[in-house]
C-alpha cells in the first residue's frame, strides 16, 4: 500500500515537472554574479555593466545580482563557488587570480578547470602609472632610476598578494633588477585613488581603473605591457619596445559552478555571447582599452584556461612564490 502511494506520488511529481523540463531552461531565481575582486576595480566595473545590460535589454527573466567577494585575493570567491557545486544560479566573474590564487594557496582545494566555462568577454591590459606631479619621472628609465634610488622603500599599490598585479610587479622587479614594497588595497579603484593621493608611488592598474584620473590629469601612464600599443594609449610605449621582455594580459571571463546542468550552461553561453556582440559591450572595450576581438567558449575556453594555468605556474616558479607572498 505504501509502495503504491509512493508510486502514484512520484508519477504525479513527474507529471508536474515534465512540461517544465521540455521548455527551454532559464533562471528561476536571481542569479548571483560573484566578483572575485573589490568594488571600483576592473572586474567590478565589468560585472556591473553586464548586469545592467542584461536588465535593460530584458535578456533574463530574473535579475543578476553582483556580489563582491574580494577576500584572500579571490580565495573567498573561489571557495564560495566550490561550496555551490551543482548550483544553476551562481556565476563567477573571473580574472587572472582565477589561476594564481589556487596555485599560491595550496590548501584552498579548488580545481578551476572543473568550473563550467561560459565565455571569455575580453582581454584586459596593464599599464604602469605614476602621479602626474612626479615631473622627475617621464619615461621608463627615469622611473627605474627613481625606484633604485628609493632602495626598496618605493611603494607600489596593488590589490593583494597573489593577484595579477603582484605577479606583474614581481616580474618587473626581476627584469629591471630592483626591489619595491608592495602594499595591498581592497580593489583596483582604491589603488588608483591612493596613487592620486600620493599614498603610494606607482601602480599597475588596468586602463578602466585609471581612466577618469588620467583624463583629469591626476595620473600618467609610463609604459604598457601589451604586445602592441593599444588605443587610447597610442603615445605610451610598450615594454618590449623598450627592451624589457614583459607581456602580460588579463583575461575577463565568466565561469559557472562545477556540475552545473548542461542546459543552464548553454543558456548562459548564449546570453553572454549575445552580450559580447552587443554594441554597448564593444564600445566599452574600445573606450576602456580592452581587446574584445575573439569570443571563446566551451572547450576552447577550457583549453585557454588550461594553458593560462600552466603559464602562471611557470611565471610564479620563475619569480618565486616568496617574492609574491612574503611582502
Amino acid at each position: 500500500m505504501k509502495f503504491l502511494k509512493t508510486l502514484t506520488m512520484s508519477a504525479a511529481a513527474l507529471a508536474i515537472t515534465a512540461p517544465a523540463a521540455l521548455a527551454e531552461w532559464q533562471p528561476r531565481k536571481p542569479v548571483e554574479f560573484i566578483i572575485m575582486a573589490g568594488t571600483g576595480g576592473g572586474a567590478d566595473q565589468i560585472a556591473r555593466l553586464l548586469q545592467g545590460l542584461i536588465q535593460s535589454k530584458g535578456m533574463s527573466p530574473r535579475p543578476f545580482i553582483p556580489i563582491n567577494k574580494p577576500g584572500g585575493s579571490g580565495a573567498e570567491a573561489l571557495s564560495y563557488m566550490a561550496g555551490k557545486e551543482g548550483d544553476n544560479h551562481t556565476l563567477l566573474v573571473a580574472l587572472n587570480s582565477f589561476y594564481t590564487t589556487p596555485i599560491i594557496q595550496e590548501d584552498l582545494a579548488i580545481d578551476i578547470t572543473e568550473l563550467a566555462p561560459i565565455g571569455r568577454m575580453a582581454m584586459d591590459t596593464f599599464l604602469l602609472w605614476v602621479n602626474s606631479e612626479r615631473d622627475d619621472i617621464t619615461d621608463l628609465d627615469s622611473y627605474v632610476e627613481k625606484v633604485k634610488e628609493a632602495d626598496s622603500a618605493w611603494r607600489v599599490g596593488g590589490t593583494g598578494s597573489g593577484q595579477e598585479d603582484s605577479i606583474l610587479t614581481a616580474m618587473m622587479e626581476k627584469e629591471m633588477d630592483y626591489e619595491v614594497t608592495y602594499i595591498p588595497f581592497p580593489g583596483g579603484g582604491t589603488v588608483a585613488k591612493n596613487l592620486v593621493g600620493n599614498q603610494v608611488d606607482s601602480t599597475v592598474n588596468n586602463p578602466a581603473e585609471q581612466m577618469e584620473f588620467w583624463r583629469a590629469g591626476n595620473t600618467k601612464p609610463i609604459v604598457q605591457f601589451n604586445e602592441e600599443r593599444e588605443p587610447p594609449y597610442e603615445d605610451v610605449p610598450t615594454a618590449q619596445e623598450l627592451g624589457v621582455d614583459i607581456v602580460y594580459y588579463m583575461q575577463r571571463s565568466i565561469a559557472g559552478t562545477k556540475g552545473m546542468d548542461p542546459e543552464a550552461i548553454e543558456w548562459y553561453q548564449n546570453l553572454f555571447h549575445e552580450l559580447f556582440q552587443s554594441e554597448e559591450w564593444q564600445n566599452y572595450c574600445e573606450t576602456d582599452g580592452l581587446t574584445c576581438d575573439e569570443w571563446l567558449t566551451g572547450d576552447d575556453l577550457a583549453a585557454f584556461h588550461e594553458s593560462q594555468m600552466q603559464r602562471h605556474r611557470e611565471l610564479i616558479e620563475e619569480v618565486g612564490a616568496e617574492s609574491i607572498t612574503n611582502k
Binding site: 563582491n68 577618469e212 584620473f213
Partner: peptide
C-alpha cells in the same frame, strides 16, 4: 569609489546610464 556597499550599486547604475564617475 563607492563609500558604502549601497553606493557601489548606485555606481553600477551610473556606468550603465553612460555617466563616468570621476573628477
Amino acid at each position: 569609489i563607492p563609500g558604502s556597499p549601497t553606493t557601489a550599486i548606485l555606481l553600477g547604475g551610473m556606468i550603465i546610464w553612460g555617466l563616468r564617475p570621476g573628477p
